[in-house]
Design a binder for these strands. Sequence first.
DNA 1: GGAATTTACTGGCATATGCCACTATATATG
DNA 2: CATATATAGTGGCATATGCCAGTAAATTCC
Lengths: 159, 159
Amino acid sequence: MVNDEKMREDGIWLYCSNSAVRRASRQLGQLYEDAMGDTGLKGTQFSLLSQIARSGEPTLKSLAEAMVMDLSALGHTLKPLIRDGLVELMPDDKDRRAKRVGLTETGIEKQKDLTTRWQIAQDRFDKAFGKEKSEEMRRTLAFISSPEFAEAFNSDKKD
Amino acid sequence: MVNDEKMREDGIWLYCSNSAVRRASRQLGQLYEDAMGDTGLKGTQFSLLSQIARSGEPTLKSLAEAMVMDLSALGHTLKPLIRDGLVELMPDDKDRRAKRVGLTETGIEKQKDLTTRWQIAQDRFDKAFGKEKSEEMRRTLAFISSPEFAEAFNSDKKD
DNA sequence: GGAATTTACTGGCATATGCCACTATATATG
DNA sequence: CATATATAGTGGCATATGCCAGTAAATTCC
């Protein structure tokens, strides 16, 4: 119905940045997931594998911070990856409280394989959205995700 | 450590739009949630209540489309709201397959109450990010969330 | 009009995320 | 050094989301 069309045009997401971002993340989750296809892994898992690969062997804590993720959420999210043998945890030499995360051999391979597929999705995104704008948006989102932004957002409380 | 700082600067989210959006949605989820405080409701639930309020009495299907959410996911997400008496489902007169969603009296009140708190968070966001840029970003995200964008993204498959 | 197909939901299963309480370890303090 | 406090993770519980396999009602096609 025409009514539904209107509904998709005018919604809370035009006024609420939080809703807007969540909604977009559902859409992109969908689109990228499709493109990644049958590998059995989710977009989030690819992000995680990739970030671990980029980070060397980060501690859970620092990985969580980089991902802007709750530490316990990270722990939960890693479980299926550990269970499937893509990722492993090992104790830190210096600090016995800390654990470090690393990719296994299998994990490294899988990450490379996924990267190929992911690149296809990312190329589609860049093409549909514009490469320049795409990069700019990622920078903008990275800014919004930064602790500096969180601080700016919260420091406002006193005003 | 200084190393962690670097990790937060250079990550997969600078290259993957999907990761970037998800990461930002975690950050904003956090910030808005804080601002909404003790009402017992989540940001997502506020979005949902607000969109229902804006939509009159949408069918589950059309609400799901507007939210860019899987129909079954919407169903699941509504359950706690129904259980807590904020939302109710009723059959559609014309199409007996369809159900319509509406706010209860309690739901309407709660939504209004939440809006006050939400506005504070939104104002903080606009202040920290810039009101103009904020609006522009929401429009951009709405575009990314549109079926037209999904189509553009996917039509690329043939090229 | 009745069978085939499509549409709108529901329920089960799995991952994604976050909060809180609790444990172990490291650090700071008197 | 012993205690108080801060830090890194874990486990339980709750919501967020999506996929898939039904079920029921509406539509399409002989």
